[in-house]
Design a protein around this nucleic acid. Structure first.
Length: 577
RNA sequence: CGGGGAGUAGCGCAGUCUGGUAGCGCGCGAGUUUUGGGAACUCGAUGUCGCAGGUUCGAAUCCUGUCUCCCCGACCA
């Protein structure tokens, strides 16, 4: 490709509305332009990277036996009503009407459409296992789109759906996809972790997220420093602490703690550490149910764990009025003792071993000291409801400690079970001619987000440093002086030879000063570069420069081409497992 | 949804408090000189000052409404 006849609108200044590096660099490198909040045009360079990644995904999906198809973005309301998600999905689902007043939505995901197709076409156990995938544009009307392609409203996603005769066959499909995902992100040269995740509202029995590690990631993940355990903090389990030796119970006492509304205030006021206090929280299901949660004072509640533990669909903090009704106390002095209204009391596992604790007295400006579980207050049940922190003991191995990371969720695999096949009545006939419900799995990869995550993980002060498999071009050839016919002829020859050998090459033939060309080439992140200048040429040499390391190799022309060829081949061979 | 901020040339911004007919840098076009890390000089083009009302002799500037965009929060008891 000739730079001069291509379209790479780079910009020097960082656009003011871009917050994170990948967004800034994608704009500056001329990869994307914003049309509206969370809606982007992929310019040629951006599209090239996206296509590169799509093709890796496609190759690995095909290798894993998935079959490509393409479903519509516009979907009829009827299907969503049938699955029950038309009402459940909320404002993220962009709805509209056609000229005949028929209701439609932009597809945020395709469980309904694929299940509809499958229930019509898959009738026999002999047609399974089968797995369909597509690479397609989704629309989710996000509350707050941000960070460029990282959280857009319109975005490209690879989604796959597996269909199996039973649960164990579905497990095998899940594992095949999991392994394919590992290969995909490995091939892109990304530093990632597969972590256990909460299956959330999509439902299903278990799921894993694929997280690219980056400080700008929106998710927190915990991983063990000695075993393979890794999980999203939403899901990460805490290890039950061994109860210490039973302590002598001191007499319960009510003390005045004027205006001490937070754990930190109370602990400081009473001159104790926060881990001697109990934090009391009241939660609402949003539909009339309430529950009280008890935590060690220095711990944080994990709302998702509590929600799952209570079996609620939604969870939110109770309003001040509801709290007043249930406890008779304003916020800041809550405790499990002496409730005005009985609600379930769930205590975190760490509360179990505590003795002589400080907790709210359900009375303004008053706390109890030396409160003891069992003697002074009952607990309905104990459960793991706190958020893990760095240094916590690993739940899976002895001696391991949890480390915390930030991650960008680029892929998610779910074992769905029969949730959608039941609501949409997707069944088959087994070998005995008996009707059975199909078992499903679903598997997503954010295409644009992965490219953005790759940039987030691979850049320097000069711009993007693309991993070669995702780079828009493998190599650039920079002719230093466009007016020097000798230089131009030599550069062009190198460019043509590289192209001939299958190296995707951008020939920077522009009549620009060398500085401009170097800056642009750095910014757009082409991994390899050959610089052709009159001085070097006089000695029969050109320079091979490696973007990532900054390494410069002066080589004779033919050797330079061979070198580039070798570097490209070495990086592009699919990993073998 | 709540809170904060911003819409002025393609991009980044000043001008708004104190109303007087729109400016800077980059970019863009022409020319000359330059040519190994975002060149210098000369000349030039480019604006419904987000939109709609209102106040005024006069509005980018004041008032009202509206749209759009960005950030933060939904981590507390």
């Amino acid at each position: 490709m000739l730079y001069s006849s291509y379209f790479i609108p780079t910009v020097k200044e960082t656009p003011s509305d871009a917050e994170i590096v990948s967004h800034q660099l994608m704009l500056r490198a001329g990869m994307i332009r914003k049309l509206a909040a969370g809606i982007y045009t992929y310019l040629p360079m951006g599209l090239r990277s996206i296509r590169k990644f799509e093709n890796i995904v496609r190759e690995e999906m095909n290798r894993a036996g998935a079959i490509e198809l393409l479903m519509p973005s516009v979907q009829p309301a009827e299907l969503w009503q049938e699955s029950g998600r038309w009402n459940f999905y909320g404002k993220e689902l962009l709805r509209f009407k056609d000229r005949k007043d028929g209701e439609f939505c932009m597809g945020p995901t395709h469980e309904e459409v694929i299940t509809d197709m499958v229930r019509r076409e898959i009738k026999s156990y002999r047609q399974m296992p089968i797995n369909f995938y597509q690479i397609q544009t989704k629309f989710r009307d996000e509350i707050r789109p941000r960070f460029g392609l990282m959280r857009g409203r319109e975005f490209i996603m690879k989604d796959a759906y597996s269909f199996d005769v039973d649960s164990s066959a579905a497990d095998a499909s899940y594992e095949r996809m999991y392994n394919a995902y590992v290969r995909i992100f490995d091939r892109c040269g990304l530093n990632f972790r597969a972590v256990e995740a909460d299956s959330g509202t999509i439902g299903g029995s278990f799921s894993h997220e694929f997280m690219v590690l980056a400080d700008s990631g929106e998710d927190a993940i915990a991983s063990c420093d000695s075993c393979r355990y890794a999980a999203n903090v939403e899901k990460a389990e805490s290890r039950p602490t061994q109860p210490g030796a039973a302590k002598e119970m001191l007499p319960l006492e009510k003390v005045s703690t004027p205006a001490m509304k937070t754990i930190a205030d109370v602990a400081a006021f009473l001159n104790i550490l926060a881990d001697r206090t109990i934090k009391t929280l009241v939660y609402s299901s949003g539909s009339g149910d309430f529950a009280m949660a008890l935590l060690r004072g220095d711990h944080e509640l994990n709302e998702i764990k509590l929600k799952n533990c209570l079996g609620w669909d939604e969870i939110e903090m109770a309003t001040e009025e509801a709290i007043m009704r249930i406890t008779g106390s304003p916020i800041g002095f809550l405790g499990p003792l002496g409730l005005k209204e009985q609600v379930p009391v769930i205590a975190d596992l760490a509360v179990e071993g505590m003795a002589n604790v400080v907790m709210g007295a359900n009375e303004k400006d008053m706390h109890f000291i030396n409160a003891n579980l069992g003697r002074d207050f009952p607990v309905e049940r104990f459960a793991d409801i706190r958020t893990v922190v760095a240094g916590d003991a690993c739940p899976r191995c002895d001696g391991g400690k949890l480390e915390m990371w930030r991650g960008i969720e680029v892929g998610h695999v779910f074992k769905l079970g029969t949730k959608y096949s039941t609501s949409l009545n997707a069944t088959y006939l087994d070998a005995d001619g008996k009707e059975q419900v199909i078992f499903m799995g679903c598997y997503g990869i954010g295409i644009g987000r992965t490219v953005a995550a790759a940039i987030e993980q691979n850049h320097d002060e000069n711009g993007i440093i693309f991993p070669l498999p995702l780079a828009p071009f493998h190599c650039s050839v920079v002719a230093l002086n466009a007016k020097d016919a000798g230089v131009m002829a030599a550069a062009k020859e190198i460019y043509l030879k590289l192209e001939q050998q299958g190296v995707e090459t951008l020939f920077d033939d522009r009549d620009e000063r060398p500085g401009v060309k170097f800056k642009d080439n750095d910014l757009i992140g082409i991994p390899l570069r050959i610089v052709v200048g009159s001085k070097g040429l006089a000695e029969g040499k050109v320079e091979v420069k490696i973007r990532k390391t900054g390494e410069v190799l002066p080589l004779p022309v033919e050797e330079a081409i061979t070198k580039i060829r070798q570097l490209v081949d070495a990086t592009l061979v699919p990993c073998n497992t």
